[in-house]
Nucleic acid binder design. Structure first.
Lengths: 238, 238
DNA sequence: AATGGCGGTTGATTCAGATCAAAGGCGGCC
DNA sequence: GGCCGCCTTTGATCTGAATCAACCGCCATT
């Protein structure tokens, strides 16, 4: 069982019981019989780098369980300004909406594999399963809490604090999936990071450079190494 | 049946069926028998202006249904910077948390009345009620969506757009409770608005003044009148 | 090995909003 | 009525991050 940040190649669709992200996902709440039932509803789908899985304003036809890879979730203003509201990792569940349309867009950062459920079938499946509904609640409330943390970041923190908070948060999320590590892979572009933190690409780049000059991080191609994790954590906490 | 932004005076605890905010609240999902059951679990409580109903990091002991008045929900950074993550209005349900502790503080803007439920009792009450769990989901997902909208505002909008978006959003929320109106009551202080929008009090004040100079709004004590709603909406949409 | 393109970095300058400072306005209270 | 304190507005100045503008490094293509 390994969690992959990149979908390697179209693999056979294995049974839900063997699903590598099961215990991190919604499906952790299901028993064996339910998993077998669910198996008929989900279809594995692959998306290539930068492909869009669903777009803002599109009708919601499916729910999605991310299996491999990383996705960016973002909202666009009419004039093109973009705010990334989150990055999705394996185990994340997408497609819950208040209305019948998606309120944000989601596309692949690198190749991804997704487990897709028809909206209607899935809705029927969960309808009377209180334990599953409670699990969905738990996920929704956790996401809401993260969203509120992010509001604090966007509204009240300096560029340096934003970048540090992002590094620590991303490291911790990856750590929960694959265990702790001092080097943090950053599959997303600088522009993505900027749009997530409410900054410009130049400011993100300058801030990374400053942290590197201060011997706090090391900038590597596609990743950042935390030379002084305590300093980064301090910046993130402050 | 009237919805009040201010709790007038300690009133008798009327039965849930007569609750003025029922159809806006969680309880809209309950039938008569369930309402009668719930009646024994909820207690009406009053709070005076600026009193804290619960604080960040405090253990969660209760759930709360706001009946009358307005509350501010906010997070504090260690150095005192504050981000208001939302304002609560009658019908709003508070106290759902991912952990056992509150992730934000909530206090009264003006006098409020709250229907308080013991956490354990309420958890037992909803445990197997799928329709109620679905309703809670609906509320959580709606809040998440609002939070994402607010991230866009905080990360990507100018001061003028922020203020306009706030005015329109607040007007619409009040409108849903008490019908449309051209004059928007603002029970919260300028500082609250600033901390909600990720601005300073001076910038909020200046932006209001500018909109008034442009004949777009009229600044009244405790409220704002929208002279040119279309202009405000345009600023908010842009 | 040259060419072109793209993502990232760096530098110079500008500007929106923050900060610092002072003065109004208004209600509560003696 | 007059004084106090708080909230809000207004003005002057400053500054962190945005904007504008090169430029670098690296890979892919020819």
């Amino acid at each position: 069982m390994k969690i992959s940040l990149v979908a390697v190649e179209p693999n056979e669709q294995q049974p839900c019981v063997d699903c590598s992200v099961r215990q991190f996902s919604l499906c952790a709440a299901l028993d064996r019989a339910e998993l077998r039932e669910l198996e008929h509803l989900g279809r594995h789908v692959h998306f290539a780098t930068c492909e869009t899985v669903f777009a803002q304003e599109e009708m919601t036809t499916s729910f999605y369980n991310l299996l491999e890879g990383v996705m960016r979730l973002y909202k666009l203003l009419p004039d093109g300004r973009r705010q990334i509201v989150g990055f999705a990792l394996p185990g994340d569940f997408l497609g819950m909406t208040a209305s019948a349309r998606h309120s944000f867009s989601a596309d692949a950062i690198g190749p991804v594999t997704i487990c897709r459920f028809s909206r209607a079938a899935f809705a029927r499946f969960i309808e009377d399963k209180a334990h599953l509904l409670r699990r969905i609640n738990e996920l929704a409330v956790r996401e809401l809490s993260q969203a509120q943390d992010h509001m604090v970041l966007l509204g009240r923190r300096s560029a340096e604090e934003k970048v540090a908070t992002f590094l620590i948060g991303w490291r911790d999320r990856l750590g929960r999936l694959s265990g702790p590590a001092k080097t943090v892979p950053l599959p997303m572009s600088r522009q993505d990071i900027a749009d997530y933190l409410g900054l410009t690409i130049e400011t993100v780049s300058r801030t990374f450079t400053k942290l590197e000059r201060d011997r706090v991080i090391d900038i590597l191609p596609g990743s950042i190494s935390l030379l002084d994790p305590a300093r980064v954590e301090a910046l993130a906490a402050a």
